[in-house]
């Protein structure tokens, strides 16, 4: 009696402690190539916000962003040189980089991913595990 009650309590606790499914907006990109290792929250890029203001071409052709989450190896050094995010987030077109937490706003430890992607939503996981995506 006691034992099963204990098991029940533990399983209930496990359910509460385990992370709930994230429900971020479709196409939100979490970039955690280097952030965690540098003691920063991972960066979260909202595609929806940017596509209201710019066509895909601006970032993916003009600025050279590859179509791959985490595939651009973005660093703050590159950003302050005017590459990638730094092409706009420079105080001219958009707010400047001293607003760290505007991008570095992800839950620490979240792996690099594109939220809501087909591979993520499949019932059976594919050969590639989420966390190993580079």
């Amino acid at each position: 009696m006691f034992k099963s009650a204990l098991i029940g309590l533990l399983s209930m606790l496990a359910v509460l402690v385990l992370p709930q499914a994230a429900q971020a907006e479709y196409a939100d990109v979490v970039i955690n190539n280097y952030s965690d290792a540098a003691g920063m929250r991972p960066a979260v890029f909202p595609h929806w916000y940017h596509r209201i203001r710019f066509r895909c071409k601006v970032c993916h052709a003009d600025l050279g962003f590859k179509f791959k989450a985490g595939g651009n190896k973005i660093t703050m050094a590159k950003i302050i040189d005017g590459q990638f995010c730094g092409a706009c987030h420079n105080g001219e077109i958009s707010w400047s980089v001293e607003n760290c937490g505007m991008c570095h706003s992800g839950v620490p430890g979240t792996p690099t991913q594109i939220h809501g992607s087909t591979v993520q939503r499949l019932v059976a996981p594919t050969y590639k595990k989420l966390g190993n995506k580079k």
Binding site: Q23, A24, S105
Partner: peptide
Amino acid sequence: MAPPEDGVHDPDNDNT
């Protein structure tokens, strides 16, 4: 969902 509730953004971060 709004960023603080979406499970990806950290609600402990003021900017969120």
